[in-house]
Computed example of a mutant assay.
Amino acid sequence: MPDKFWDIGFPQGRRPRYVGPMELYARVNILDGRAVRLPHGDITEFISLDDDPINRARGWVKKGADRLHIVDLDAAARGDYRNRELIGDMIKALDVPVQVGGGIRSETEIARVLDMGAWRVVVGTLPMVDQVLFWELNRRYPYRIVVSLDVCKDLEVVIKGWTEHSGVYLEEALINLSSAGAAGFMISEVGRDAFVDPPNYEALEMAIEIVDEPVIAAGGVRNLDDIAQLMQIEANGKRLAGLV
Score class of each variant (00 low, 15 high):
66 D>T: 12
105 R>C: 09
192 R>N: 08
212 D>G: 15
78 R>W: 01
52 D>V: 06
173 A>T: 07
140 R>V: 13
186 M>Q: 13
45 E>M: 10
39 P>C: 05
162 W>L: 07
166 S>F: 07
27 R>S: 14
220 G>N: 06
215 V>Y: 03
86 L>D: 03
214 P>C: 04
41 G>I: 03
47 I>F: 02
188 S>W: 04
205 E>Q: 13
86 L>Y: 07
111 A>I: 08
169 Y>D: 05
182 A>S: 14
134 F>W: 11
40 H>E: 14
81 Y>F: 13
24 L>I: 11
182 A>D: 00
116 M>C: 14
56 R>M: 12
130 D>S: 13
212 D>F: 09
193 D>K: 00
160 K>F: 11
68 L>I: 14
193 D>C: 05
95 D>F: 10
145 I>W: 11
133 L>Y: 08
59 G>C: 11
9 G>I: 06
98 V>G: 03
243 L>V: 12
124 G>K: 03
141 Y>F: 15
179 S>N: 15
6 W>D: 04
143 Y>G: 05
71 V>C: 07
50 D>T: 08
172 E>G: 01
33 G>M: 05
18 Y>S: 03
226 D>K: 01
212 D>N: 15
43 I>K: 12
56 R>Y: 09
12 Q>M: 14
78 R>F: 12
150 D>V: 09
33 G>I: 04
5 F>V: 06
35 A>T: 06
146 V>L: 14
36 V>S: 08
60 W>Q: 10
99 Q>P: 06
222 R>K: 09
7 D>I: 08
172 E>C: 00
147 V>A: 13
162 W>C: 03
124 G>R: 01
89 D>I: 02
237 G>A: 00
137 L>T: 05
135 W>N: 12
169 Y>N: 01
227 I>C: 02
111 A>T: 14
49 L>K: 11
222 R>E: 03
235 A>K: 13
139 R>P: 04
80 D>S: 09
14 R>E: 14
35 A>C: 13
52 D>M: 05
168 V>Q: 02
185 F>L: 07
40 H>D: 07
87 I>D: 03
50 D>I: 06
180 A>C: 13
154 D>V: 06
159 I>T: 14
83 N>Q: 08
59 G>M: 07
110 I>C: 11
183 A>R: 06
145 I>T: 05
102 G>D: 06
56 R>F: 09
48 S>N: 09
163 T>K: 11
172 E>Y: 05
224 L>F: 11
111 A>K: 15
50 D>E: 08
236 N>K: 15
159 I>Q: 00
84 R>D: 12
110 I>R: 04
147 V>E: 01
38 L>N: 02
207 A>Q: 00
229 Q>C: 01
129 V>A: 06
237 G>F: 00
159 I>K: 00
167 G>D: 10
